[in-house]
Amino acid sequence: MAEIIGIWVAAFLTLCIFSFLYKDNPLYKFAEHLYVGSSAAYMLVYFYFFNIKPMLIDKFIAETGLARWILIIPTFLGVIMLLRIHPKIGWISRWSIAFTMGIGAGIGIVAGIHGYILPQTKATFLPLFIKGDLIQSANNIILVVGVLTTFLFFYFSKEHKGLLKPPVKIGMAFIMVSFGASFGYTVMARLSLLIGRIYFLLHNWLHLI
């Protein structure tokens, strides 16, 4: 029974959102507000059960001594974060914001070097000529030229004139192909979601297919 009710509820909400294709209307607004409220609360429930409970509450109960009492610091930082909505004492929340900014910046540097720059650079060091495999050689050349020229396109310390102009133009071409391909890829992802929803309506709800 719960399953049938669930399918009807899901179908109603799906139709409510699709009604926006006609024009903005109360049914769409209802679904929109339901979505905002539900997803905001969902995030809180998720963070409580996957972050706060195991890392703070369960740990506070399980640990002893310093390992237990030191958990007061993140609790304090978390609570003072909530003071942000109070105009007079809201400035205290800067301490917890500063903490998260520091962590974020620290992770940013480490992740920037080890997650992006080094692996991406390493992957670009390709042989430009492979004996007996002209296609792979051409692909490698295109890849290396593409990376370097794209990189040059974002070099703004010197005006894109003279010697810099041709490679920047090539870089621009690569960026355009990349944007076009990414656009096509996104369209296909959205279309597959759309197909999924239509399939749900026709198969799970109406049993037509």
Partner: peptide, 19 residues
């Protein structure tokens, strides 16, 4: 190939900006 090349260039640039 071309999409990856541009994406790689952009990613390296983004990482430098992030650092």
């Amino acid at each position: 190939i071309p999409q990856l090349a541009a994406k790689r260039g952009i990613l390296i640039g983004v990482a430098l900006g992030m650092i």
